[in-house]
Design a protein around this nucleic acid. Structure first.
Length: 274
DNA sequence: AAGGTAACCTGACTGC
DNA sequence: TGCAGTCAGGTTACCT
């Protein structure tokens, strides 16, 4: 489900409800996620004040006094805020966090998501094994043409898959990889090493624009994504290529093509993207 | 080191 | 209506 924009939309929706608040209760109804949710989570979290809700790539980082709660939404996860006691939990409502005056619910049908704990004593959260090898943030000024150019030298894999790998820049998932490459006019099959400085610059620009636009409209709604307050995102309404196989390119009317790269669907315009 | 593939899991949809 | 097959936003682990 969630790529960086959906996670950022979630973060912004949750932050005002959680920052500065104290955890009064934690219920783990089903610990079976990508990795087991620690059984000790309630004892570690209850009584803690949430200082900041941060994001790194597609991870949400809940900074509390004793450490960091790491949450990843996987393919189908979502957090919902309830300002009144929530209705009876459904089959996929795995975790609940109670604050002073609101209830947070983690729902994740496919259970590819994760909820982990990193005690402060274990050191800098950035060095956590899940975070240590992530690429730069797309809105970080360090994400520029020179970085992309340098990082793609010697990489024979198609640019789409390199973008998706997340070791150069984080947060670009399957939808936005196709969308960014369309906007940059780059063929997804192009070996990454064949990008020149100009195309690296265009790609940087395109990734930033596409992600920023998606955030501003509340993320994508594919199947069941809804933001933390229950609103749907609108990005898919304006997708240029994703999910549009056979439909006319919005720029040149050429039919959009779909192909598989590393078992994932890629959509592109064969005329606009070379 | 980089690249390819299988694996984790459920639900929605398609076609017979 | 039912059943089998396909596909889905992500990421790690493992093999070459």
């Amino acid at each position: 489900m969630p790529e960086l924009p959906e996670v950022e939309v979630t973060r912004r929706a949750l932050a005002p409800h959680v920052e500065g608040r104290r955890v009064t209760g934690v219920v783990v109804r089903d610990a079976r996620m990508r990795w087991p949710v620690p059984r000790e989570l309630p004892q570690w979290l209850v009584g803690q004040r949430i200082d900041h809700l941060d994001r790194r790539g597609k991870y949400l980082l809940w900074q509390v006094e004793a450490g960091t709660l790491i949450s990843h939404l996987g393919m189908s996860g979502s957090w919902r805020v309830h300002l009144a006691p929530p209705p009876a939990p459904g089959r996929h409502d795995h975790v609940e966090i109670h604050l002073d005056r609101c209830w947070l619910r983690l729902t994740d049908p496919r259970r590819f998501g994760a909820l982990l704990w990193h005690p402060r004593a274990d050191g800098d959260i950035a060095q956590h094994p899940l975070l240590a090898h992530l690429g730069v943030e797309p809105f970080d000024p360090r994400f520029d043409a020179a970085l992309v150019y340098a990082a793609t030298r010697g990489r024979t894999a198609p640019i789409k898959q390199v973008l998706l790998a997340g070791d150069i820049v984080v947060g670009v998932g399957n939808i936005y990889a196709s969308e960014s490459l369309f906007r940059a006019g780059i063929n997804p099959k192009l070996p990454a090493r064949r990008l020149g400085p100009m195309r690296c610059a265009r790609l940087v620009e395109a990734v930033r624009e596409v992600l920023a636009e998606a955030i501003s409209v509340g993320g994508s709604t594919l199947r069941d994504f809804v933001g933390a307050e229950g609103a749907e995102g609108y990005f898919m309404r304006e997708a240029a290529v994703y999910g549009r196989e056979g439909a006319p390119c919005r720029a040149c009317r050429t039919p959009i093509r779909r192909l598989l790269q590393g078992q994932r669907a890629t959509y592109y315009c064969p005329r606009c993207q070379r």
